[in-house]
Design a protein around this nucleic acid. Sequence first.
DNA 1: GATGAATGAGCTTTCATTCAT
DNA 2: GATGAATGAAAGCTCATTCAT
Lengths: 191, 191, 191, 191
Amino acid sequence: MAREKDYSKIDKIFEATLRLVYEKGFAGIKLTEVARLSGIAIGTIYLYFKDKDDLINQLYQYIKRKKKQDVNIDLDLNRHSEELIKELWMAYYESVFNDLKAADFFYQYQQSNALVKLINENDAFVFANLRRVLSKGVMEGRLKNMDEDILYTIMIGPIHEMAKQALKNNFKATSEEKEEMFNCLLSSIKN
Amino acid sequence: MAREKDYSKIDKIFEATLRLVYEKGFAGIKLTEVARLSGIAIGTIYLYFKDKDDLINQLYQYIKRKKKQDVNIDLDLNRHSEELIKELWMAYYESVFNDLKAADFFYQYQQSNALVKLINENDAFVFANLRRVLSKGVMEGRLKNMDEDILYTIMIGPIHEMAKQALKNNFKATSEEKEEMFNCLLSSIKN
Amino acid sequence: MAREKDYSKIDKIFEATLRLVYEKGFAGIKLTEVARLSGIAIGTIYLYFKDKDDLINQLYQYIKRKKKQDVNIDLDLNRHSEELIKELWMAYYESVFNDLKAADFFYQYQQSNALVKLINENDAFVFANLRRVLSKGVMEGRLKNMDEDILYTIMIGPIHEMAKQALKNNFKATSEEKEEMFNCLLSSIKN
Amino acid sequence: MAREKDYSKIDKIFEATLRLVYEKGFAGIKLTEVARLSGIAIGTIYLYFKDKDDLINQLYQYIKRKKKQDVNIDLDLNRHSEELIKELWMAYYESVFNDLKAADFFYQYQQSNALVKLINENDAFVFANLRRVLSKGVMEGRLKNMDEDILYTIMIGPIHEMAKQALKNNFKATSEEKEEMFNCLLSSIKN
DNA sequence: GATGAATGAGCTTTCATTCAT
DNA sequence: GATGAATGAAAGCTCATTCAT
């Protein structure tokens, strides 16, 4: 009978928070600002989130979930490992560049040990598939026999680095460059 | 407004700040905490720094200077470009892993748009040499004819990625793995 | 502005308020809590009461009315004053212990200068009869010629004190002890 | 070297709080008001007290301690029990009326279950001596063989009742009346 | 210079009250 | 009427900065 709880408000709140983090940095999140930017009353924010930390943590979870979806392609492990790697890499690349502000928040959150640490092991889960496929490649002898962490680092590091640049200077690789970049990275770890 | 007097005090303040950033994140820097951790009175901090921003900016400058020194090897451009790249890459790698907390602060500072932007173009200067040498390689036809930013991204991204892991899980490549990793990356961009 | 409609709702609201005062104290009354405890929507509370003060004031009035009824025995002033005193004292005693939470609220309300003062002279009216009868006793020479306030204090104070204990430690006098207690008090002021 | 922590500030804070409770009631304590009234900055209050609850709890403890001192006369149990009772009763009476605001706060705090309950058994300790002496009187056969709680109630209740009146109407017994009142109460429980 | 107690602007959070359904 | 989501004024609390010693 009362108006129904409007969960779309959560989206607006998240959006405003991301914008704020993008503009002012992680330290610049002020809930009154979030309220102003999102057009939602401060009290309402506290209706959906226990407190500021909760908002930030939930936003992190939300982005993580979304990224997981973006990357969690259904993998047929019978397929060629290089193909699988490419599919995953491209998916992650797109996921990052499709929402750079989210990516920005994501990294800053992980960096900031400030908050109740919800960043636990299974956070890596976002990337678990890539790791798995890399391992497969190694076992099949297609990839160099290097530590999985290093292989992962080589493949993923440049994406993050480029995202950082994209946030600052707006530099972004073209579609061909993306392709080229991937080929470079893959070839570098292939046997 | 740093009285160029007691550098040991400044060191302690910087150190405490880095530790705090490491423990609580960039957003978690509180000057009273810095005072407590450094064993220097809060009032004294204000003798050495105009305000909080000044402290953070000076710390950033300080780290930048140090990194620049670490990396600013005297380059004889007559030498083989691959050799030069390796020297620079290794120097930067060491610089990062020799003081991970400083590296952490460095990235978080750059990420955080919070502060008066002192991060200007010549910040890239830290890496200017690497960029220059990469360009040289391209012009000489030794490296693939890709955008300098992308080449840079491929070479540097994995270092930053690994540093991030090192801060969290303490994973760190061995000396051999480092070598191997470099070889992978370089080969990936070589013609 | 109580719609004189659904008294059962008002009862539930009052009851929840009393429970809250008992559990959290007078300062701890939160209308959202009252709503939750009473099972009545917060909006509905505002249909029955103008605002929080109104609710509290009305509850006070309600309890006062009830207490007045409990104590306002039809007094035949021809009867023996001691008999009358006993009747009133016992009635008040029962009234207090029959609903300790209401008594608790009653005292806290009177103590709390917080609200628009509705506690005016005729509040004493609850006890007016006792005072009147005490006066009568003095005039008849049966009671000591002391200030009426003091006589009143001696007779009523112990009831309140015991109620306080009852609320905390659940100590409560037996029926015989009650009798005994009354006799003590009365004898102490008799000539 | 910095100015010394000025513990007299605590007194000023307490005083302002008591005044506020007296004027606005327990629910009306607002730390900004306490700051204003006491002439102490809000931040300073948080230097001496963890939070609002802490301030209120510590004020309670403080008053309790003071009352304990007021009443904790050195008792020679060889003395006549009636004499001892009188001494204690008078001391408590004075203690209450010497600082009615403190007494007011004291009762309101006890009533308000709102706060972390620090009101434990040994709170009764304030009155332990009176209880002990009453017991002694009973054992010696000087006082009626009634439950200690009831005896206590009879002796103490009227003081509290009168204090309540004193806070409201400014009624206060004269010195003779006080004497008289005590005599009444004592005689009422004597054998 | 050095110190840390004191300050108060400004942020976080609560809760009485309103209002769309 | 009844509901409870939404609101925002006002209260609680923090922390960069100042200032007395």
